Amino acid sequence: MTQAFPPEDGTGLSMRNLTHLIYGLFALGLLSAGFFGVATIAAVVLAYLKRGDAAGTLYAAHFDWVIKTFWWGLLWILISAVFTFIFIGWVTGLIAIVWIVYRVIKGWLALFSAQSPLAD
């Protein structure tokens, strides 16, 4: 059974605050139109590093959500960059960016509600 809020040992950031930090860094990278792209990379690295600590909790689903959003978003942005040579890449790129923003908002709102981002 998964715990919504695992017991905290009192040292460092709680898993909840860390997950908020990850979403915040990811959003900062998006809002800055890539200027702070390192923030998005930092969010994904944090999610990978803390993924094991969150196993069996609600936060594991959020870390997986952020990681999948990053990799799928990167794939579609790169494909869109290639497609700009045939002028359809601008449309697919815009769709990819909207999808990434949607996933960050959906995941973050689910975290505020103490739910998994996969729950509809």
Rank of each mutant, 00 (worst) to 15 (best):
Met1Ser: 12
Met1Gly: 14
Gln3Lys: 15
Ala4Cys: 13
Phe5Lys: 09
Glu8Phe: 05
Thr11Ser: 07
Thr11His: 03
Ser14Ile: 00
Ser14Lys: 03
Arg16Met: 02
His20Gln: 14
Leu21Ala: 11
Leu21Phe: 11
Ile22Gln: 04
Gly24Val: 05
Leu25Thr: 09
Leu25Asp: 06
Phe26Trp: 12
Ala27Lys: 12
Leu28Asn: 08
Leu30Arg: 09
Ser32Asp: 10
Ser32His: 10
Gly34Met: 06
Gly34Phe: 02
Phe35Gln: 08
Gly37Phe: 05
Val38Phe: 15
Ala39Ser: 13
Ala39Arg: 02
Ala39Phe: 12
Ile41Tyr: 02
Ala42Met: 07
Ala43Ser: 14
Val44His: 05
Val45Asn: 05
Leu49Asp: 04
Lys50Val: 00
Arg51Thr: 04
Gly52Lys: 15
Gly52Val: 07
Gly52Trp: 07
Asp53Met: 01
Ala55Arg: 13
Ala55Tyr: 12
Thr57Lys: 08
Ala60Val: 13
Ala61Pro: 02
His62Val: 03
Phe63Ile: 02
Phe70Ile: 07
Phe70Val: 06
Phe70Asn: 03
Trp71His: 14
Trp72Ile: 14
Gly73Lys: 10
Gly73Trp: 10
Leu74Gly: 14
Ile77Met: 08
Ile77His: 08
Leu78Ile: 14
Leu78Pro: 03
Ile79Ser: 09
Thr84Gly: 01
Phe85Ser: 07
Phe87Lys: 08
Gly89Asp: 06
Ala96His: 03
Val101Lys: 06
Arg103Gln: 14
Arg103Gly: 02
Ile105Glu: 03
Lys106His: 15
Gly107Trp: 04
Gly107Tyr: 06
Leu109Phe: 12
Ala110Arg: 06
Phe112Tyr: 14
Ser116Cys: 10
